[in-house]
Design a protein around this nucleic acid. Structure first.
Lengths: 401, 401
DNA sequence: CTGTTAGCGCATTCAA
DNA sequence: TTGAATGCGCTAACAG
């Protein structure tokens, strides 16, 4: 077995560094380990070989190490100015004399001062962070390329504007509830909500929130609680279906994504729109997720009538890959016998054999656009809840159709 | 073109809700739009049709809406107690009379009070958050299933312990610098550092940090700055190589991952270990990334000698899929002519044709274990920097080898 | 240009 | 059990 678990080395003292200076006033620090531990800490599964030290001087030392961070006052004292001046210096702009600035700068490096986030946020009443909240049914959803690209795009735009993006994952009732609380407590200045599910538990939470929110998907524009940015899912799927129809392929099966997903439903609408009268409810496979195995199952389901079919239009690329693989196994040639299309243009589209013809969407742009909208709201622009911006989709023509 | 961009509706007033009560003392709120905007806000790419309102009463109203959140004092006043009592009530435990508790509860729901995060953090000197920091060269790395599974695992364990996991992405110099600052300012109580790169710019930043840190990868145990949890990458790759050797396949090519990745290098070590004297430096393809296209390129590179080869051992699943596809295109049968193995056991292993034989690692466990270690450190346990915990890997035997 | 002062909202002593 | 007071570290208004 390749199951080597290295026994960890024995534990040494916390560090060789000398204890810090700057310890003038003696702090009150009772509560010597009682409420150090937060709620619900279940410490039963402790890794072995870790020194479980009880409340002793060592503990104090390590705590001190964490607490004795120099403050703005220490810097002021060192520089021989009032701490108001230091604050001004730190906030860049206002009038500080050359002389004072230099002394402060020196004092800062000498004391290794770093500002405290919480204090700043409290005084300014803003955190300079934007939370990107991902609400998912399945953890696999986070792994989708579109998601990480959107995150990258948002991270870039928000970062350039001076905001730090922090992403929170709501994948259970607990985590959703916890995040809901945070949102109510002004954890961030604004929120990008990737609620990949229609019955959003979070929606209610957000209803009363006083900070700007932007959504990533929209199904019904009418009762949209917040502005949103989405793709032209419907048009994209409609167009690629027409693309097949134009080739004379009319016996099409649709493999639908999970019913809780707005995008999934919008894409399905697009397929129906293109098919018109030719739409056949029995030529639809309803998947529970976005995974490749669902595509395989779809093909198995339709095996008896495979000879009469022209193509599979799939809700996304993973499903399409599953379809292609299963068709290959059954001995059908793609696209000669049966064409297959996907949606997303994720990297795996290129790993398909034959390479996947799919609907391309620029997910990075998605994140960027949502962020720009949020930023404008953070600036004070008022955007009505029904505001929707739709991003274009195009057909990426490859080999599978 | 399927490029429908809906023109957004015109803008309405911010909300129909009446202005809030609780406005006793008149606030000083000068700075009427000047420094509302944070640093570097480049507002040139504003979406159209959004009312860019200037400083007027509307702006004030919306600002007020965000600010007039009730505080603990408002609750106290409503309940007829001192705000100290309310604080005690909120923090669960200590002595509060039944009577007072009920009145406070009523006051809270009536005033819609929600605590303020920053104030709490400041007073408690802890945030009850743990930051999971992903430092990547390529954004595609975030999309890997292993990453999202680790995140899910960490989110679960940390959440159960009362901590909120917040993930930060460092994918540029700017973002890395920004995150480094946050870390210095006690943004979170602890850090899970997924530094998927050896020359970590963050490492220096973290060197002086006073909060617990756990790493996700380890190359050299000796000079490890923090405790780490990793997989038995070396043993895993060694074992699957032996698995091929035991089949009599000795003419093996290794497709190496990016050189900046510890895991990549460790896996390479494993291959070499298994090959021993048979290791041939010229039978190695050094990829720059973890992508499938690199696998394809590797096969192209070795095309002239493909007939003499027994198998491809790949640094991860994506690369392996690229190898399989390219071999298929060249008319080689997998595994009959040439075997192919991967590493990770990600979902795409099942989308390969034939299905991929690979090294399995439990990435969710990775996130969980890192989190448990961090939690123990947050409790005060002292873990020496060289502490390393290695998680097992096993062979997932399928069809490709 | 700079020092002083007053909070930001909450936790936590200390008396009562 | 509770009220009052102090401080967390910093920002921002106001005098000077």
């Amino acid at each position: 077995m390749s199951t080597t678990i290295h026994a960890p080395n024995k534990v040494a003292s916390t560090s060789g560094k000398p204890t810090r200076r700057l310890a003038n006033r003696t702090r009150t620090k009772s509560s010597a380990r009682s409420n150090e531990t937060p709620v619900d800490q279940n410490s039963d599964k402790q890794p072995a070989n870790i020194q479980q030290h009880e409340a002793n001087t060592d503990a104090m030392d390590s705590m001190d190490d964490a607490q004795k961070k120099p403050t703005i006052r220490d810097v002021a004292r060192l520089a021989g100015v009032s701490y108001g001046t230091v604050s001004r210096y730190l906030n860049g702009n206002t009038h500080v004399s050359q002389d004072a600035a230099e002394r402060i700068a020196a004092a800062i490096t000498k004391s290794q001062y770093t500002p405290n986030n919480a204090a700043r946020s409290l005084a300014q009443r803003r955190t300079l962070t934007v939370a990107l909240i991902i609400q998912v049914e399945s953890n696999e959803t986070i792994a989708q390329a579109s998601m990480s690209r959107a995150m990258a795009g948002a991270n870039q735009v928000l970062g350039d504007a001076g905001y730090q993006m922090v992403t929170l994952i709501a994948n259970s009732e607990d985590s959703t509830r916890r995040i809901a609380q945070l949102v109510q407590s002004d954890f961030s200045d604004g929120y990008l909500l990737f609620s990949l599910s229609e019955d959003s538990m979070l929606a209610n939470t957000f209803a009363s929130v006083k900070r700007p929110v932007v959504l990533s998907e929209v199904r019904e524009r009418e009762n949209l609680p917040f502005p949103a940015v989405d793709f032209t899912n419907t048009e994209g799927q409609r167009d690629i279906t027409r693309y097949l129809l134009d080739q004379g392929r009319t016996k099409l099966v649709y493999v639908c994504g999970p019913g809780y997903s707005p995008s999934s439903n919008n894409r399905f609408d697009g397929f129906k729109a293109a098919m018109g009268d030719r739409f056949n409810e029995r030529h639809v496979y309803y998947a529970d997720d976005w995974e490749g195995t669902s595509g395989e199952m779809a093909v198995v389901e339709f095996q008896p009538m495979l000879d009469e079919l022209d193509g599979f239009v799939c809700a996304n690329d993973s499903i399409a890959l599953g379809v292609i693989n299963q068709l290959n196994r059954f001995g059908y040639r793609v696209p000669d016998d049966i064409a297959v299309t996907g949606f997303d243009d994720s990297p795996i589209a290129l790993l398909a054999n034959p390479k996947l013809t799919t609907v391309r969407q620029d997910s990075q742009l998605h994140g960027e656009t949502m962020s720009r909208l949020l930023l404008s709201m953070l600036q004070g622009d008022i955007v009505e809840p029904h505001y929707v911006q739709l991003l274009p989709t195009t057909i990426a023509e490859r080999q599978s159709a």
